[in-house]
C-alpha cells in the first residue's frame, strides 16, 4: 500500500490555505491514502480543519510544546520518524515548506523535488527552473519521494471530507541549538496574497511609501490583496511579505493589476498563473506589456484615481 503524508502548514489555530493545495497535488499521485500531519503545540482546531479537506484519509496530530512555532530543526526529526510508513512526503512550497522539507529529505538521505507543478506519475513530475523560463520533467529515484508543491499550480481541494483525527506521540530527541524569538507580521487585515482572487501590485514607479496609499485604497475598493515588486520592497515602500516573484510569493489570482512595474523576468515568475493581467505603465516599451492581457500606457496615479471612481 502506498500512502502520501502531507505536512500541514498552520499558525496554531488556522490551517493555511496552502495545505489544501498540497493535498490537491497529493490526490494526483493516485495512491491508496492521503494522510495529513499537524505538528503543533495544541493544534486540535487545525486538525479539525484538515480532516475536512476532500480526499484526506486520516489526520495525525502530533502535539509538543516545541511545535508552538514552525522551527525546521524541531519539526524535521519528528517528520523523519513518521516517514517510514509512506511512499511520499509533501509540503507546500511556501517559506514554511521550503525551510523544512530539505531538512527532512537530507535526514532521510533522499533528494527533494522542489516546486512540483504537475504530477505525471507517482515518480515523474514537472517543475519550473530558471525563474519559470524552463520547465523540467524529472524522475525521482526509487524509494521515498520528498517534495514541495508549487501552490499556484493547484486549486485548493474542497471541504466536504470527514477524515478521522488520530493523536500520535513521536518520541525523538529535539535539539536545543535553536530558539524562536519573535514573528513580526507585516500584513494587516487585507486578503492573504496567496489566497486572494484579486491582487493589486505596485512597483518602483509608485515612488514612495506615502504614495502606496493609492495602491492600498484601490485594493480595498476591489477587495484585493496588495503585492509589490522587489524594487518597491527594497526601497522601503512596503514590507517584504508583499513581494511577488521568483524569490517572493508565487501567486495565481483571477485578476492581477500591476502599477508602475516594469516586468522583469523575476517578477513575472510570480504571476505566470494569474488569470487576467492588467498593466499600467507610462513606458509603452515596458516588458510587462508582453504578458499583460490589458495594458494601459498612462500615469499610474491618474489611472488609479479614475479607476477607483469608476468602480
Amino acid at each position: 500500500m502506498s500512502k502520501v503524508l502531507v505536512i500541514a502548514e498552520h499558525d496554531g489555530t488556522n490551517l493555511n490555505g496552502s495545505t489544501a493545495r498540497a493535498v490537491s497535488c497529493a490526490s494526483d499521485l493516485g495512491l491508496d491514502a492521503i494522510d495529513v500531519v499537524v505538528l503543533a503545540s495544541d493544534g486540535s482546531s487545525v486538525a479539525e480543519q484538515a480532516a475536512k479537506l476532500t480526499g484526506v484519509t486520516k489526520v495525525l496530530l502530533v502535539q509538543n510544546p516545541a511545535n508552538e512555532h514552525a522551527v525546521a530543526a524541531f519539526l524535521a526529526p519528528q517528520i523523519e520518524s513518521l516517514a517510514a510508513d509512506y511512499s511520499h512526503v509533501l509540503a507546500p512550497s511556501t517559506t514554511f515548506g521550503k525551510d523544512l522539507m530539505p531538512r527532512v529529505a537530507a535526514h532521510l538521505g533522499r533528494p527533494q523535488i522542489s516546486d512540483i507543478m504537475r504530477v505525471e506519475s507517482a515518480m515523474v513530475f514537472d517543475r519550473p527552473v530558471y525563474a519559470g523560463n524552463a520547465i523540467v520533467t524529472v524522475e525521482a529515484p526509487e524509494g521515498l519521494v520528498v517534495g514541495t508543491v508549487r501552490t499556484a499550480s493547484y486549486k485548493a481541494v474542497s471541504n466536504d471530507g470527514a477524515a478521522s483525527v488520530e493523536t500520535r506521540s513521536v518520541d525523538v530527541n529535539l535539539p536545543s541549538h535553536t530558539r524562536f524569538v519573535e514573528l513580526q507580521s507585516g500584513g494587516g487585515d487585507r486578503p492573504d496574497l496567496q489566497a486572494a482572487s484579486k491582487v493589486v501590485s505596485g512597483g518602483r514607479g509608485v515612488g514612495s511609501e506615502e504614495n502606496f496609499k493609492v495602491i492600498y485604497s484601490l485594493a480595498d475598493k476591489l477587495g484585493a490583496g496588495v503585492g509589490a515588486s522587489r524594487a518597491a520592497v527594497d526601497a522601503g515602500f512596503i514590507p517584504n511579505d508583499h513581494q511577488v516573484g521568483q524569490t517572493g510569493k508565487i501567486i495565481a489570482p483571477d485578476l492581477y493589476m500591476a502599477f508602475g512595474i516594469s516586468g522583469a523576468i523575476q517578477h513575472l515568475a510570480g504571476i505566470k498563473d494569474a488569470g487576467t493581467i492588467v498593466a499600467v505603465n507610462k513606458d509603452a516599451d515596458a516588458p510587462i506589456f508582453e504578458v499583460a492581457d490589458f495594458g494601459l500606457v498612462a500615469d499610474l496615479f491618474e489611472v488609479a484615481e479614475e479607476l477607483e471612481k469608476a468602480l
Partner: peptide
C-alpha cells in the same frame, strides 16, 4: 541517488493581450 531530468521544455506562453486606450475601456 539523484533526480533524473527527462526533458526540458519552454513554459506555456501567455496569449498576447491588447492595449486599451482609457480607463473606461479597461
Amino acid at each position: 541517488a539523484a533526480v533524473k531530468v527527462l526533458k526540458t521544455a519552454a513554459p506555456a506562453k501567455r496569449e498576447a493581450g491588447i492595449i486599451v486606450e482609457s480607463v473606461d475601456e479597461l
